[in-house]
Each structure stands twice: as C-alpha cells, then as structure tokens.
Amino acid sequence: MDTARIESIIDSHDGEASSLIQILLDIQNELHWLPAEALQLVSERLQVPMSRIQHTATFYKAFSLVPKGRHEINICMGTACHVRGAPRVLEVVQNITGIQPGETDPDMKFSLDTVNCLGCCALGPVMEIDEQHLGKLVPDTAAEVLKKYE
C-alpha cells in the first residue's frame, strides 16, 4: 500500500476527524477499496477510534472492504428502472458473472453492485460499467454487452 499517498489524502483534509468520511471517500476513489492498513493509518492520524472507523466504513455504501474487480458493474435499481424490468437484467447479469451484488468474481474480472438511482430514469433499465451508462436494457442485450469485457 502506498502509505505516502494515504498520508497526503489525510493532509489534504488537514487531518480533521470531522473529515473522516471525505478522507475515506478519497481513499476509496484512489484504491477502489479500503485496505485494513489504510484504516489503521487513518485511525492513528485522525485520533478516531478504530471501532468508529469500522462502523463508518461499513455503514456507507460507497465503501468497500474488499478489492474490486477490473470492471465495476452497477445496476440501477431505482423505481423507474425497477418497473421497466431491472430485476430481470440483474438476474441475467448475476447468472453470467456468477456473482451476487456486493461480490467480486474469483478472477477479479467483474464486481457487481446495485445502486438505488443513477438519475437517468428516462433510460431505464440502466447499467453502468466502468462509469459508462448503458440504457434501455433488456436481458439479452445486457448479456451481449458483458461478452465484450476481458
């Protein structure tokens, strides 16, 4: 782990305990997960008890305590997407990747997650792969799309 990088993230927030969530978000964006060593460092530098960091890191959905795969799939489960068939898209994606939301496959190819609303309701059902939005999906196009990823 790049300790200096974590240190500089903490410094950019002046080491303020109230910036805990902002610091964890920056680390998450940088590493795509929160390694235990990073949390330990944050705890020491911010003088925030580890139990509170554990609670915070598991409370907010943006944080992951496991490394993510090469491709991050987010399937929107917003209401608009739901009534337009998002659960069927999710099921097909689960079948193809062999993982459930919140999981990463053993080859570290895909991480799958559901999100509550990406705010592109007109395009529902929406799937986001590596920050690219794919709209108006039906199960078989979702299956096609996934084949393109290595």
Binding site: S18, I21, Q22, L24, L25, F59, Y60, K61, F63, N116
Partner: peptide, 22 residues
Amino acid sequence: RGAGAFVCGEETALLLSLEGRP
C-alpha cells in the same frame, strides 16, 4: 460528499454525517 446512505436525507442524520460519523 455523501457516501451512500439514504437515511442521511434525514436532518439529524445528515448533521452527524457532516461531523464525520455514521
């Protein structure tokens, strides 16, 4: 930046979140 918790739309939860807590 909110880190992904619907309940933080509730005012007292939002305030705790601003203070860096769950």
